[in-house]
Amino acid sequence: MSTTDVMPETPETPPPSMSSSRRRVGDAVFSYLSIGSGLLIFVTLALVAIFLTTESLPAVRESREFIGESSAFSLLETTLPLIFGTVLAAAIALGIAIPVSIGIALFISHYAPRRMASGLGYMIDLLAAVPSVVYGLWGGIWLVPKLEPLYIFLNSTLGTWPSWPGFVPLVGGQPVVALFAGDPTAPMRNLASAAIVLAVMVLPIITAVAREVFLQTPRLQEEAALALGATRWETIRTVVLPFGKSGVVAASMLGLGRALGETMAVLMILAPGATFSFHILEVGMHQSIAANIASKQAEASGTEMSLLIFTGLVLFVLTFIINALARWIVARSGVKS
């Protein structure tokens, strides 16, 4: 971890500037306080990383990959399906949430009357404040039975799509990527339900950031587009969206971070399993890392606990990678505009 490199620096902070001998005390105190707060983030992060690493070592040491005995448990076999489930759920959630969020954000920034826009924005922010356990209850008790007819419809009509040979790899005669295929059984505690609730949960974050970005669009550019005869839609497409692209990407990555780490809602909705199935309507096929830790930690001890912490470390690293990716994307598209 690169974060551990920060550790040695933490006790000593370099004095900011020595130029003036008549500096006020308040200045110095405030500058030290703010530097301290900044460093605190690194220390916290480093401590979490150290905890995860040291606590997961016992599991690594006893794993099949390390000692080479086939009777030992496998780190890869435990972790890979969980990573798959986590990423798949988050990806589907974002797939639903991003278009809707952009729609809401554009409505607020460009279509809605001013008074309505501020009211709507307030409500979106409120949605972000609802605790995830409430979403979990709502999803598990109310939403899941309501989704049943939709899933059965999707399964019966699109269940075999896309099954064109040559287009999608087939395994055992079943198209691998046929999302709606399989055998859904009620109650629909499947990945699709979990992803839908996750989408609702990440919606406010993405919407709030995207709205702010769209509102920053230079007025002159928009007016220029309108003056050239562009319709409102054309203005948005040619001016607002290109301008806000990097902001939308950043917002999506924030949402992705939440979707990856979300625990309670997934725990309360999903009937878990550990496979690499793309059949999102089938129950007992997927599980996310965070929900798995929450569900197993109560009765885990010794190596089991260590293994759970190892999966936590994997999630930590995964989140890091995705954040780095997001920064890279934002930086790259930022240069262009």
């Binding site: 598990g140 008790i141 899941v144 039975p145 059984t185 009620a186 109650p187 505690r189 725990l267 309360m268 009937a271 878990p272 399993g273 496979t275 089938e282 129950v283 007992g284 096929m285 569900s295």
Partner: peptide, 17 residues
């Protein structure tokens, strides 16, 4: 695979559902 629930309450609500 198969249906499941987290904890006794989760299992009961799955069976009820």
């Amino acid at each position: 695979g198969g249906q499941s629930g987290d904890g006794t309450s989760g299992l009961i609500s799955t069976v009820e559902g």
